[in-house]
Amino acid sequence: MLKDMTLGQYYPIDSPIHRLDPRTKFLMTFMYIVLIFLFKEFYQYGLLLLGLGIVVWLSKVPQRFILRGIKPILFILIFAFVMNLFLTPGEVIWSFWKLSITREGLRLALLMMFRLFLLIMGSSLMTLTTSPIELTYAMEVLFTPLKRLGFPVHEMSMMMGIALRFIPTLTKETDKIMKAQMARGADFESGNLLSRARALVPILVPLFLSSILRARELADAMEARCYHGGEGRTRYRELCYEKRDAFAMVIFLVFFGGILWLPRIIA
C-alpha cells in the first residue's frame, strides 16, 4: 500500500555511486538543488537530464524504482504546472472562457515542472545510494563548524538518523494497522473527503500511540547503554575522502560550470 515511497529509501547494492563518500554526495546534491533553480533555458535542463541519466545508470538502481518516487508528488507537480500555466500574466496565446494561457505562463509552467522533477529525482538518487547512517554522519561532519555558534549539531543529526531509521518501521506499522482495520471492514478508498478523513482515525490513533511507546522505549534503551549526547563520542567507522571523490567532484563542477556558461557562449 505504501510501498511506492522511494524518497528516503535506500537501495542496497554496490555501485560507483554507492561507494562515493556520503559527504561528497551530500555536497553535490546540495549544489545540484541550488543550481537547478539558476538555469533558465530548456536545453540546459535537457543536458542536466542527460547527466542525471548517466548517474542513474552508474548507480545501477533500476529506473523504474527511481521513477516510482514521483508518484507521491505527482499531484503537486500537476498543481504547480496548472497554476503557473493559467496565472502568469503576459502575451496570450490561447484563451477559453475566463482562463487564458500566456506564452510566459507555458514557459514558466514547463520550467517549474522540470525543476521539481529534477529536484525529486536528484534527492531520491542520493538517499537511494546512501544509507541513512552514512547520510546523517555526513551531515554531522559537514555541519560541525556550526557548533561554535551553539547549534546542537550532534543532537540534530541523531534525531535525523532516528527519524530516517524509523521511516520503514512506521511504514510497515501503518500498513499493518490499515490491513487490520480493513479486515474489520474499514474502507479507505471510497466516500467524500470528510468521510475519508474520518476513516483515518482508526489508523492514526493506534499509530500515534505505538510511536510514543516506541520513542519512550528507544530513549530508555539508549540511556541504558550510556548514551549522553555527542560530547567525547567517537565513531566505529571514520569517514575518509578517496581519490574517486575528488574525481567525481571535478566532473560535477566541470559539468555544471559548462551548463551554466553555455548560454553566454551561445550568445
Binding site: I177, A180, Q181, A183, P206, S210
Partner: peptide, 12 residues
C-alpha cells in the same frame, strides 16, 4: 475474520 498479531494495537 482475521485477528492480526498483537491485535491490541489496533484498538482506537
Amino acid at each position: 475474520g482475521l485477528v492480526f498479531q498483537y491485535p491490541e494495537y489496533q484498538l482506537f
